[in-house]
Design a protein around this nucleic acid. Structure first.
Lengths: 248, 248
DNA sequence: GACGATCTTACGGTCTAACAATTGACTTGT
DNA sequence: ACAAGTCAATTGTTAGACCGTAAGATCGTC
């Protein structure tokens, strides 16, 4: 008998087409904004049906490689995968697998200090202005408006990540922070005291970034993230049941 | 005239269906492995055509939320997004935007030390065995077999990331390391001397992980990654043109 | 000549109806 | 007991038609 023959995988036609188009797109030849052939052209050149061609294009669209518009002079254009796309996929991964909170906390502890260090080195005047404005809004909301406080807190971390001027790092940091803040909102553990500590932490971090002191910014964020993780975990344990809190 | 009415966005039927199914899937009600309705059932319950239903399912499949099999008792089942899915999307983001090498290096510098620290704390005996075996194979391949060396090097970092026992961190680390090693292969800068240094670095890191010393593992990986980044960047600068090397 | 309304047309968006391929359970034969 | 063949429900794929959209082209009016 023939050996070394595993299960024979018969790929779907749309997968094959999507893969080939993907290689074309990534292979330098296509610059962002370039037009792909129309669906009907692809039908005639590939010999596939229009349904299969459309499924292939839908795959590429989901991957963020292509953008499709209707109407005359519409069609599919090559695109750069957006930050939002990457963030969405990371969120899907995390939510779909219901990752434990401590795993998220660990990743965040890896990313955010680096974000802060780079932000201290590279922040523009505009970055600083944005951060200061958000920081003020957070201070004002800390006392009475919980929703606004949480929303602005997310904005603050977004702005900080943007100031790092590293797109990939920014997307990863935003995703992970967002997931953790979502957990915070679910647990509603944010007491007035905690909010005050968050404000103070922001002030100290912003100060280091204004001074351009990368190491200080890194250390302060590291401490802040660790503290936040501990608080959240304690809140989770308490919510799960006080009698099991010491099991870990 | 009516004001406050921006551009009216008319969503595609398949997008709407995909979004609604996605919410259902993520909303606890569905556990991985559960069956979705058949395409024709979805057609009758939604009132859409089968083509639109299939496009929606293809979106979910690309997002890794669903797995579809043909044949009787086939259909779409709920799935957890796999590591491979996430790695692919990150790679698409990085390649599609042709991120600069230093951005990748920075992210790697954030992730890998944390990987090593967690690996030192959590590695099982099996993890150690795998790492030792790969390390030996790398040593053997370092002298003569460049392809094997590069391949085993990737394996080593995969195994290290796995030993951290943090799925998200592992997926992120694998992606970024993979992208950097790809760049290494393109530039073919790996001289015998560099390879020897890589081997030594691996030995020192493995030693710290065997000892369970998280801080030492973190510091050693940090130093290693920084050194690797500098070497790669120098090689890239040299390849781009010796006269522009000092411009940075 | 300028400009707004209308027409034209090339494209994606959607639907219907069918047939092919796949696959696991069921049945049958020995 | 087991192997081969049959069956049926499901996805995979195709063909053809029509609708909706949007931007250029044309025409009419001032």
């Amino acid at each position: 008998m023939l050996e070394g023959l595993g299960r024979i995988k018969v790929p779907k036609s749309s997968d094959v087409l999507a893969e080939r188009l993907k290689q074309e797109i990534l292979s330098d030849a296509y610059h962002p904004g370039a037009m792909l052939p129309t669906e009907r052209d692809l039908v005639s050149t590939t010999g596939l049906s229009r349904g299969s061609v459309r499924e292939a294009l839908r795959i590429l669209e989901t991957q963020g490689l292509v953008l499709t518009r209707a109407g005359r002079y519409g069609g599919s254009t090559v695109a750069k995968p957006s930050d939002d796309h990457l963030v969405n996929h990371i969120n899907l991964y995390a939510r779909g697998r219901s990752l434990p909170l401590n795993a998220l906390a660990e990743v965040r502890l890896a990313l955010e200090p680096m974000v802060a260090a780079l932000a201290a080195e590279r922040r523009t005047d505009e970055d600083l202005e944005t951060l200061r404005a958000i920081s003020e809004r957070i201070d004002q909301a800390a006392e009475n408006d919980l929703d606004a406080f949480l929303a602005e807190n997310v904005n603050w971390h977004d702005a900080l990540a943007a100031a790092s001027h590293n797109d990939l790092l920014r997307a990863l940091a935003i995703s992970v922070s967002g997931l953790m803040f979502e957990a915070s909102r679910l647990k509603e553990f944010t007491s007035t005291e905690v909010r005050q500590r968050v404000c103070n932490a922001h002030h100290r971090i912003l100060e280091a970034i204004e001074a351009g002191d990368a190491d200080r910014a890194r250390r302060r964020v590291e401490r802040d993230v660790q503290a936040y993780g501990r608080i959240l975990e304690a809140a989770m344990a308490a919510a799960a049941g006080p009698d099991t809190a010491d099991a870990a």
